[in-house]
């Protein structure tokens, strides 16, 4: 598989009144064509900011201050804002956590779907009437693809006239309208009922297989990752702490944080016993010293951990940011 997205040493900072917050600090990642990468981590770990940075959607007071982003051989950080608009929606698409707030309440579904095509699709016919027909056909086709019944009549409806699951599907349809090479799905199921969650994830997997697109699935649900992702990347306090093939990472986590995450998941076999939380708090991202960020919460921590820790090899295709890896074999 060839590499589609390659991010090296990405850093994104937000200037707040109290100082500089380094929300993403030295993140490197790769996604191959057609691959599904799971990105896990708790709220504030920098998952979403990492991918907003890749899409060039970080707004002031935030700023990408360092790193390279290559997508399909093109340097995204070197692009002008106008060039980035040509990439977003066409080559890299994104869905957001809550479709209710991501869809514009004042515009019809049809308009919100059609505008992506108008912005990006050069294969549309140029004649006015033919163009309109072609756009409508594509919209109907996309809604059909994501499983909206009688799409033809629903194009004129507004977001509030759909159920939560339907809205999520519509947002996915919009994201997929131009057949992107990479879909960034930011917590696609968090806002949904459990029964609908599975359907939406199936839909993404299904379309991914059909279109051969890569997916970055941002979630804090390791179960979702286990079921749908080829590889997984765990983030903590703005850094990647562990990455590797899903089965290996989940079956045999090496970083103490990943172990803690897995231990805190309820299991049927542990019924009646208290859950094992990770003790302590996520560190404040402002003015962090160059040392292991999980140190204060880590059961394996030693004074020698108070140094800057690089990503270290942890087996074939695996890396983790921990000095005590030999103790977690």
């Amino acid at each position: 598989m060839t590499v589609l997205l390659e991010v090296t040493n990405l850093r994104t900072e937000f200037s707040a009144r109290a100082g500089l917050v380094r929300a993403v600090d030295g993140v490197s990642l790769q996604i191959s064509r057609g691959e599904c990468l799971g990105v896990v981590g708790e709220s504030g770990s920098g998952k979403s900011v990492t991918f907003s940075s890749i899409m060039g959607l970080v707004r002031p007071p935030g700023r990408v201050t360092q790193g390279t982003i290559f997508f399909d051989g093109r340097d995204l950080r070197g692009m002008s804002p106008e060039e980035m608009r040509g990439v977003r929606g066409r080559d890299i698409a994104m869905t957001m956590q809550d479709a209710l707030t991501a869809l514009n309440p004042a515009l019809t579904i049809g308009e919100q779907l059609a505008e992506v095509l108008v912005a990006h699709d050069e294969t549309l016919p140029t004649g006015r009437a033919a163009r309109r027909v072609a756009i409508k056909d594509r919209c109907v086709e996309m809604l059909g693809l994501v499983g909206i019944p009688s799409p033809d009549s629903r194009l004129r409806q507004y977001p509030h006239e759909f159920s939560g699951g339907m809205r999520q599907r519509i947002m996915i349809a919009i994201a997929l309208a131009c057949r992107p090479k990479l879909l960034i799905a930011d917590e696609p199921t968090t806002a949904l009922d459990v029964t609908i969650q599975a359907q939406v994830l199936e839909l993404i997997s299904d379309i991914r297989a059909r279109m051969g697109m890569a997916v970055a699935l941002i979630t804090h649900d390791l179960g979702v990752v286990a079921e749908h992702c080829d590889r997984v990347m765990v983030m903590y306090a703005g850094q990647v702490v562990e990455e590797g093939p899903t089965e290996d990472v989940i079956g045999h986590p090496r970083h103490p944080y990943t172990r803690g995450l897995l231990a805190s998941i309820p299991r049927p076999a542990m019924r009646g016993q208290p859950l094992t939380p990770i003790k302590g708090q996520v560190p404040n991202l402002m003015g962090l010293a160059p040392q292991c960020r999980f140190h204060s919460r880590c059961p394996l921590a030693e004074p020698s951990c108070l140094v800057e820790v690089p990503m270290l090899s942890a087996g074939p295709g695996r890396r983790a940011r921990c000095l005590r890896l030999e103790e977690t074999v």
């Binding site: 959607l57 977003r88 929606g89």
Partner: peptide
């Protein structure tokens, strides 16, 4: 943000 993510003008 979503409209921006769609790459609209």
């Amino acid at each position: 943000t979503f409209a921006d993510a769609k790459g609209l003008p």
